[in-house]
Nucleic acid binder design. Sequence first.
DNA 1: CAGTTTGTTCATTGAAACTTGAACACTCGC
DNA 2: GCGAGTGTTCAAGTTTCAATGAACAAACTG
Lengths: 170, 170
Amino acid sequence: MSRPATLDAPRASGRLTPAEREVIEFFVHLGRYLSLPRSVGEIYGALFATGGTMTLDELVSRLGISKGSASQGLRLLRGVGAVRASYRPGDRKDHYAAEVELPNLLRGFLRDQLSVRMNHANERLGRLLDAVEDPANGAPDGLSHRVERLVSWQKKAKRLVPLVSTFLKM
Amino acid sequence: MSRPATLDAPRASGRLTPAEREVIEFFVHLGRYLSLPRSVGEIYGALFATGGTMTLDELVSRLGISKGSASQGLRLLRGVGAVRASYRPGDRKDHYAAEVELPNLLRGFLRDQLSVRMNHANERLGRLLDAVEDPANGAPDGLSHRVERLVSWQKKAKRLVPLVSTFLKM
DNA sequence: CAGTTTGTTCATTGAAACTTGAACACTCGC
DNA sequence: GCGAGTGTTCAAGTTTCAATGAACAAACTG
């Protein structure tokens, strides 16, 4: 019944203060709900904690993760707008900072990720509707009606998105 | 670059019509976004497609999954309110039906799952705030301010839930 | 241009999750 | 109570996924 001890704890974090460890643990835990790899939560947590910028090899050495994990994690985080890279003149390393403003974070997510998924779902639903309405496919009674229901809910969800956006700005 | 062929396709489905297969494929795919096991998507899809009820061994034979998977999948689906069991007099088998009304589905989810998670997040944030405000923990400059920001957003999200509930009823 | 630094890619490894199937517990009818 | 029918549990096998680290590509420096 006991949870594995490694679930929440960062692995090697010799150079981190207790406060930083707490923040990282928090984001690792949060990431689990979004089914994100632990390393992603660690990276975002470390950047959130410092408030400033860190380079890839700083993340590697302070978090004790591999260069590969750090590279891939940073790519994912930049992809969803959770981390920004800043280039400094006279320094060849990239400097990464956490986007800590939730509205900005969600704005990027809603625009890039969610709308893509919505359109994808739209497509799939359309194809599904075609399939169940083809008499050759032997759809059970009332199935096309239930699928039409799904379509209408999908439209409703789409209308909900801007509403949430507005709410977040308040 | 090619996806594994097994990703979307139900495994053994000899007794299913093409329309049913399409519906099942749809829910298996949808389940992937929620990181649900394939068998769960298959079960819900099969119940959604028929519209009526099915027994455990009907699901087993028509989907070609094991009794164990079916039992566990049905438990999960009943747990989140996506499937209801109905008991019929004169029949020892349990009959299962999909809850196809999205508002009902989400009502259960919002009440049972989300509020629990919200409270959990609340707790964690409180402990995090305590930790970063303890001078002994060496928090970087401005960290407690950023964490307070998280707290205020969490409260905002909590207020958003009933709003979404209302919207779904329209 | 050779050497160094920086970041990415990818095959391999290891761990966690899903599925299976058989053993088990429970209930009903006789 | 006995036997058949129904559903659950759990150890073992299989699959899936994240982490690693070495090889690679790109960009700068002297």
